[in-house]
């Protein structure tokens, strides 16, 4: 059989019945529903905090009870009380401080190195369009490459000490910084350049007095992302091969079924991560004020 187009069906009267229904509805208008603008009132801060703490207490309590009653296997999941004890011994043994410092050091070094070199590389593209066009495909290649896949190679080259963690953290932050700084370079106001050249400026003057300052907000915007990436790089480096660090503590504890220690190390890592994030956010706001933004 052949398909009949809807218009033809309509002509044949197929749609008559529904249309008639519709018309009846229109002839007898329904009463208008009166609605109010939905408004949510703010709770007092104390109430919000109380609920937040409540959720935490309930979650930890449930975990402990579940482990006690055997709902979950405490061997795999550990339990809050055991984690608390392990936390104490982890700090008393002094491992916590040295591991945290190790991870902190490689993260900060990698962050600083990757961001600085990456930004400098990105800014360098302002100097020559041809140079930028030649290098661009390589950068895109390196960007799409999962840098963590290079970790075993980096460990081989830089050893199992601090250097390999710094290298991995730098590799992760470098490309992002390059691309962001390059985006900043491309966004430099062409008229601004014309103004500088009309004043008889040299290229170096345009670079230092116009290009670099106008890219600063772009580079600042990448700092928070980079601190997270640098931490990832450092921890993965420790996973692959290391004698120190929180990443190594997590891996080691997992392999020896010390699940409580895994949780403890993850907790310390989160605290470290949050601390660095807050510090970088503070740095960011300071820098933004410095450039009048």
């Amino acid at each position: 059989m052949t398909l009949t187009p809807p218009a033809a069906l309509a002509r044949k009267g197929f749609f008559k019945a529904p249309l008639a229904l519709f018309r009846r509805g229109a002839s007898a208008p329904r009463p208008r529903v009166v609605r109010r603008l939905p408004v949510e009132r703010d709770w007092p801060v104390a109430a919000i905090v109380a609920v937040q703490v409540g959720i935490l207490v309930v979650a930890i309590g449930t975990w402990e009870i579940a482990a006690d009653t055997g709902w979950i296997d405490a061997f795999f999941w550990s339990r809050p009380s055991a984690i608390g004890e392990t936390l104490l011994t982890f700090f008393e043994s002094g491992r916590a401080v040295s591991d945290t410092l190790f991870t902190f050091r490689s993260t900060i070094l990698g962050f600083a190195l990757g961001t600085t070199l990456g930004a400098a590389f990105g800014l360098s593209f302002w100097w020559s369009r041809n140079y930028a066009r030649i290098v661009q495909p390589y950068i895109i290649c390196f960007e799409s490459l999962p840098k963590l896949a290079l970790a075993p190679l980096i460990i081989l080259v830089f050893g199992i000490g601090l250097a390999s963690k710094v290298a991995l953290a730098s590799a992760l932050t470098f490309v992002v910084s390059t691309l962001t700084a390059y985006a900043g370079v491309k966004a430099v106001d062409q008229d601004g350049e014309r103004l500088f050249y009309s004043l008889g400026a040299t290229r170096w003057q345009v670079f230092t007095k116009l290009v670099v300052p106008s890219c600063v907000p772009w580079i600042i915007s990448i700092l928070r992302v980079n601190i997270g990436l640098a931490l990832t790089g450092a921890v993965v480096g420790e996973f692959i091969a290391s004698e120190q660090g929180l990443g190594r503590a997590i891996l080691y504890a997992g392999q020896t079924y010390e699940i409580a220690l895994v949780w403890v190390a993850v907790m310390v890592l989160s605290v470290l991560s949050i601390t660095m994030y807050v510090a970088v956010s503070w740095l960011e706001s300071r820098l933004r004020r410095g450039v009048g933004q």
Binding site: D189, D191, G192, L195, K209, L210, P213, S214, V216, V291, G292, Q293
Partner: peptide
């Protein structure tokens, strides 16, 4: 455009 540099 006035092209004043916002950071100065």
């Amino acid at each position: 455009k006035d092209l004043l540099l916002p950071w100065r």
